[in-house]
Design a protein around this nucleic acid. Structure first.
Length: 114
DNA sequence: GGCGTGACTATGG
DNA sequence: ACCATAGCCACGC
C-alpha cells in the first residue's frame, strides 16, 4: 500500500465516519469493509487517532470496537471525553461499553446499498 | 529485513 | 466474562 493509496483510504474512512447518524455508532471493522479493505480495521483505528490530534471535524467518538467498547477513549482529552460526547447524543455507556450495542450499531454497508 | 507496538477481530480455554 | 493466541497492516527503530 503506497502513499496515495493510504490517502484515498483515509479519505474514504473520513467520508464514512462523517455519515454516521447522530445517536448511532459503528466499528472499525465495519468501516474497513465499507471502504473495500476488510482486513484494515487496525488502520482505521490509526486514522482515528491521527484525526484526534488534528483539527478535523469527524465524529470519531462514534467509532468503537466490534464489542461496542470505547477502546480509543484514552485518545480523547479528559479521560471520559469520548463517553461524554456519546451520552450527549443519547447513547448510554456502561463500563466503557455502549449499552444495547446491537441496536445502536450502524452498518455503513446498509447505507451504501440503499 | 527483524521486532515490537497499536482506537482491531475471531476463536478457544 | 476474562486471558491467551493467532491473523491482520502500517510505522518506527
Amino acid at each position: 500500500m503506497d502513499k496515495s493509496e493510504r490517502e484515498s483510504f483515509t479519505k474514504a474512512v473520513y467520508d464514512i465516519v462523517k455519515t454516521i447518524p447522530l445517536g448511532r455508532a459503528t466499528s472499525y471493522a465495519a468501516i474497513a469493509r465499507a471502504v473495500g479493505y476488510p482486513n484494515f480495521s487496525r488502520l482505521v483505528g490509526q486514522v482515528m487517532k491521527n484525526n484526534n490530534t488534528r483539527t478535523e471535524k469527524i465524529p470519531a467518538h462514534r467509532v468503537v470496537n466490534s464489542q461496542g467498547k470505547l477502546s480509543g477513549k484514552d485518545a480523547f482529552g479528559s479521560g471520559n471525553e469520548m463517553q461524554s460526547l456519546l451520552e450527549s447524543e443519547g447513547i448510554t455507556v456502561i463500563n466503557d461499553k455502549i449499552a444495547d450495542w446491537k441496536t445502536i450499531y450502524w452498518n455503513p454497508i446498509d447505507e451504501i446499498e440503499l
